[in-house]
Design a protein around this nucleic acid. Sequence first.
DNA 1: GCCGTTTTCGGCCCGACTGTTTTCAGTCG
Length: 575
Amino acid sequence: MPIHNADIARIFEEIADLLEIQGANPFRIRAYRNAARTVGEFGRDVGALLAAGEDLTRLPGIGDDLAGKIREIVETGKCALLDRLRKELPSAITELLHIPGLGPKRVRALWHDLGVQTIEQLYRAARDGRIRSLAGFGEKTELKILQSVEAHLGTTRRFKLATAAQYADSLVAYLRGVSGVRQVEVAGSFRRMRETVGDLDILVAAQAKSPVMERFASYDEVKEVLAGGPTRASVILRSGLQVDLRVVDEASYGSALVYFTGSKAHNIAIRRIAQERGLKINEYGVFRGERRVAGETEASVYRAVGLPLIPPELREDRGEIDAAQAGRLPKLVELSDLRGDLHAHTKATDGHATIREMAHAAQSLGLEYLAITEHSRRLTVAHGLDPQRLLKQCDEIDRLNGALKGITILKGIEVDILDDGTLDLPDSVLAELDIVVGAVHSKFDLPRAKQTERILRAMDNRYFTILAHPTGRMIESREPYDADMLRIIRHARQRGCFLELNAHPERLDLLDTWCLTAREEGVLIAINSDAHGTQDFQNLRFGVGQARRGWLEAKNVLNARPLKELRKLLPKHRP
DNA sequence: GCCGTTTTCGGCCCGACTGTTTTCAGTCG
């Protein structure tokens, strides 16, 4: 059985959890968590790296010991340390750490004194009133555990970025209207544009007497107030989304913004640099002894540690600090860099608007071109186009292009990639188009070799232009299909075709880590809306966010090119 | 367990809030 990076990461996480409950050295625990993150996010298969004889200790946070454990896991599928820990502690116990309010110390006490190993046993112990008598626990803690377990068994979902944005936008507008409030920003993983967020972290700069805390607690979407101090409060909205609010004065706004934007790993790395320079960073500023030397803006905080401002989307401790120190930070792509959109649908298949309406909507966002790419005939549920209907649409586009000003409509198709890697429409028809977007919409469960081969064969078609939603995953609802993405990216490079970063909120596919690989391999990415209606172009914002997380610059983005340059890259102009 | 122009030992980010304490541990971000 092949061992994937995610498997190794899971093993290290479990080891960290078990060590933590045992009360092991916290820095040893951190080492396992860091290693889990490093391996889990690493773009290439570490098993393949080992097979190629590469030295894993070159990876950050991987020393001789952990490199040895990775080798052990890759070669045997097991880890002796984990097996030993599982004998000492019940493995299921790690699940208890995910209950809010329970950390390693309390989990250990619950297990040691009450024999609690599972969430069900925890629930019964709390319900029967057995927890309040433990040392360090009380009635309130017991009640809180009971509520946390009920909430945990109900919904523990994260919110998709676009969904969270709806709640964030209106709450931010509300807080901006409170007297004494100077600045409001959503920080946390939302600001870093992670594809899902667990909660919203909102930062406010306000005058001392501002009633912002009271107004926050009385916001009409608030269902429950979890905690509230003078500078910090947490609530649950009716939607189930947790919102944490932090209030600071204006002089601390920049350092607080750095602090609450995270990521945690990035902040730790920044603090370490500060420490080396005899400085201390906290949410109130950068300090040399008692004296504050920076803090009013984010730029001032980074400057104090000798770095340029690092964009939030890069703050994941994935090399951005080294890049900043070396003056090699990418100039990340921005929404305003996009010149067109290369994937959209209309009423002709499963969209909701006409070609003309879609073109106007795209143009109002400043786009210069729009490719209409309907589904092909195999996708009958979407009323996919057969050759006859497609050619008829091409005529309509020709007529519209004669009438429209300021935007050009490109003729395209989102053609199904069939099981054997052939395309769902004949070459003679594809030859009439500007753009052929190919997509896998069936047989997601083919074995890795077959799935990979299927996609590579599709790319071999001389009209193939862009691989749509390349991994097929749907956020938190469908796993990516099993395919060798590195081979696919390299094949795209060889064939002169491109990969899509589909900006649909359910997809955000290509993932950030693969964007990074595509960039390194010299493959351009098309950030496309996959719009089915005129409002859907708004989603490009989230696609750009994901692209920025993947370190993409405008020059790495296909549809950041003006139409004239784009045309030169399309199949009709290939040798 | 990792790491090093203060290197092979001795460090490893920092503060708010809660509950159970009576000066602080545990948890969280």
